[in-house]
Design a protein around this nucleic acid. Structure first.
Lengths: 338, 338
DNA sequence: CGAGCGCGCTAGACCGGTTTAGTAGACCGG
DNA sequence: CCGGTCTACTAAACCGGTCTAGCGCGCTCG
C-alpha cells in the first residue's frame, strides 16, 4: 500500500553502485557523468520508483525557481491573470505558487505562507495592502504589484493606466451624447482611488464636473454594486453610470433593470476589467480590458530581470488599457444638453 | 537590502544562550519549556527578525499539515469550494496548498507539483482524471475526490448525488408542465456521465423517454453551451433545457435569448452548481446547489480521519443536492401534453 | 534520608538532498 | 618515462530544522 519508506537518492546510488553525488548530478542534468552511468542511474531510479524530494532539494539549493502569486480567486479577472502568469512563468522556467486570499485568509497571512515556501519573488495581484507593507516585503524578496500604482523604491509595478481607461470610457460616453455621468467607486483602496481620480479628471476635461458625481461604495463586489444601484434609483437618474469594476457594474445593472430601467436605452452602464463575467452574452458589459496576457508577461519579465539579471532599479510598466464596447452603452436619451 | 545571511535557529539560540532544540520547542509551542525561557526566545527571535524556515522544517518532520487541492480556478464553483476548503482546513489546523489547473497546466502536472511540496493528502476537485490514476495516487497519499463518483478501494469521495439533483430539476420542470425536455451534456468525463444518466433515468420515471433527448457537448464551458444553443435553434425547440452545469446554461441562454427566444416564457433553462455566476441578478439561473460548505467540511473530515485517526477503509459521503429555483424556469407554454 | 519522579533543558544524530574538495585513471606531449 | 591536464566519480561537510536519549535538579514520599 502506502510506500512508507520513501525511496531515497542513497537507495538509487546503492542499487547502481555509485555515490549519492553522482545520482544528484544525473538528476540535475549536470555535466561530468558518463553516458553509461547516466543511463544506469536513470534505469535504477525508474525501477525503484524514485522521485527527487523537492523539499530536501530546496533546502540547500540557492535557487527554488518558485514565484508566489497572491490573488483573490473569487474574482474572475484575477483567476484569468493567474492562468496567464502560470503560462508565462512556465515558459521562463519558473513555477507559480498560488496563494488564495479569502474572507478567512487575509493577504498578510497568504504572503507569509508563500514566503515560507521560499518563493524567490512575489506577485501581488490587485493588492490592497498599504504601500509601507508592500515596501517592506520588497526588501525581503523582489515584489511586483500587478494592476495597481504603488510607491516605494524597491517595488516593481505592472499595471494598465486606470485613469486613461476611465477616460476612454468617459470619452466613449461623451461621444454618445452623455452629459450627466455618475461614477460608482470601489471603496478606499489604491485602485479605486486611481479610477475615481481618473473619472473626475476626465469630467473636467469635458467641462462636465458640475453634472457628474461619485457614489462611494464599500468594495469591488456585486453586493456593493446593488447598493449603489439603489442609491441611483433614489435620486435623479443620470444617463450614464461608470462603475469601478465589472462586479459593481453587474450589481448595479441588475438593480436598475429589475426596477424597470432600460439599459442602455435609458441609462448606459460600464464596468472595468473585461472579466469573463463581462463577456457573458447576457451581461455583454461595455468595459475596459486590462490586457491580462501582456500584464502577466511583463510581471514575469520584471521578476526575471531581478532574479537572473541583477536589475536593482525599480521598473514600472504602464500599459494602455483597451475599451471594449458591448451592449450596455448606447446613445444618450434626449439628453439635457447644455 | 536583502538579508543574504538568513537568521537561523542557531543564531537565536546563541543570542539567548540556550540550545537549538529549545528554540525549536518554543516555536512549535511544544510543552517542556519554562515560561521565562519561552519569553526570552520569543523576544530574541523578534529582535533578530527570525522566522522558521518551513522548507527545513518539512524535511525532518514526519508531518507537514499540508493538504493539496487541485482545482480549475476559472470555474467559479471551484473557486468557491476552495474558499470553503481553506476555511475548513484552517479550523482543523491544516493548510491548503492550491494547485491551479489551467489550459497549459494539466491535472497530472499539478498533482506532481503538490506531491513535491509534500502534501499529506490530496483533494481533487471535479477531477477528470481516469479512475486508475486516481487509484494510484491514493496508494501514495490519502485522496479525496470532491464532486464526483470514483472507483478504487483507497479513494474517498465526497459529492452530492448528481442523479438526484438532476431528478429534482426534472421533477420541478415536470410539475411546471414540461414534457419535451432536452439535456445538454458536459462531455465525456465521469461527472457529465452521472448527470446524463440521472437525466435519462428521471425521464423514464416520468415516462418521458420518448420526448426527451440529449445534446452532447465537448465540455463544461460557456462556449460549449453556445454551440448547444445553436443546435437547439436548428431543430424543434423543446420547452425545457437541462444543462449539465451553469456555464453551459449561461452559454445556451445567451444564444437562445439573442435569437429572440423568451426565457422562461418560451423555453425554461436550468444549470447545475449554483455557482456565483448563477446568482447574478441578470442571470438568475434556476440551478442545483452542491452545498460547497458542507462538501468542504466532509472532505477535510475525511482527510483528518485518515491522517489523525488511522482510518483505512474507504469513506464516501453523498450529500443531497438542493434545487434553487430562480428566474429561468416557468410554466410550460401551451405544452403539447400527451 | 535515600529512592523515585517529573520538569526543563541539551548534545548530537538525522532528514535527503547539494556542493566542495579531492582522487584515480586515461591521455598526451616531450 | 615523467609531469601535467582532463574526465568521471566520490567522501564528507553542509543546509536548517526535528527528534531521541539522557542528564541534573528539586520535590515528594515511604
Amino acid at each position: 500500500m502506502a510506500t512508507r519508506g520513501r525511496v531515497t537518492m542513497a537507495d538509487v546510488a546503492d542499487h547502481v553502485g555509485v555515490s549519492k553525488a553522482t545520482v544528484s548530478l544525473v538528476f540535475r542534468q549536470a555535466p561530468g557523468v558518463g553516458d553509461d552511468t547516466r543511463a544506469a542511474v536513470m534505469a535504477a531510479a525508474d525501477e525503484l520508483g524514485y522521485r527527487v524530494n523537492r523539499t530536501a532539494a530546496l533546502m540547500t539549493a540557492r535557487r527554488t525557481h518558485l514565484i508566489g502569486a497572491v490573488a483573490q480567486i473569487r474574482n474572475s479577472f484575477h483567476a484569468e491573470l493567474v492562468e496567464q502568469l502560470v503560462r508565462a512563468a512556465d515558459a521562463a522556467g519558473y513555477e507559480i505558487v498560488l496563494g488564495a486570499v479569502t474572507p478567512t485568509h487575509g493577504e498578510n497571512r497568504v504572503v507569509d505562507t508563500l514566503l515560507d515556501f521560499r518563493c524567490e519573488a512575489m506577485l501581488l495581484i490587485g493588492t490592497e495592502l498599504p504601500d509601507a507593507q508592500i515596501g517592506e516585503l520588497a526588501t525581503r524578496v523582489p515584489t511586483v504589484a500587478v494592476g495597481r500604482r504603488v510607491g516605494g523604491p524597491d517595488v516593481d509595478a505592472v499595471r494598465t493606466d486606470d485613469a486613461q481607461g476611465i477616460a476612454q470610457v468617459v470619452d466613449h460616453l461623451y461621444r454618445l451624447g452623455h452629459r450627466r455621468i455618475v461614477h460608482v467607486s470601489g471603496g478606499s483602496g489604491a485602485i479605486a482611488a486611481d479610477r475615481r481620480a481618473g473619472f473626475l479628471r476626465a469630467l473636467r476635461s469635458y467641462d462636465l464636473a458640475h453634472s457628474g458625481s461619485v457614489i462611494e461604495s464599500d468594495g469591488f463586489t456585486e453586493a456593493a454594486g446593488m447598493t449603489a444601484g439603489h442609491s441611483l434609483l433614489a435620486g435623479d437618474l443620470p444617463t450614464a453610470v461608470v462603475c469601478a469594476n465589472d462586479l459593481l457594474a453587474v450589481g448595479a445593472l441588475d438593480v436598475l433593470r429589475s426596477a424597470g430601467v432600460a439599459v442602455p436605452e435609458q441609462v448606459s452602464i460600464t464596468g472595468y476589467d473585461d472579466s469573463p463575467l463581462a463577456r457573458l452574452g447576457n451581461v455583454a458589459l461595455t468595459t475596459v480590458s486590462q490586457r491580462p496576457a501582456e500584464q502577466a508577461d511583463r510581471a514575469i519579465a520584471a521578476v526575471i530581470e531581478r532574479l537572473d539579471r541583477d536589475r536593482t532599479e525599480r521598473s514600472t510598466a504602464t500599459l494602455t488599457p483597451e475599451l471594449v464596447v458591448r451592449a450596455t452603452t448606447g446613445p444618450a436619451q434626449d439628453s439635457t444638453l447644455s
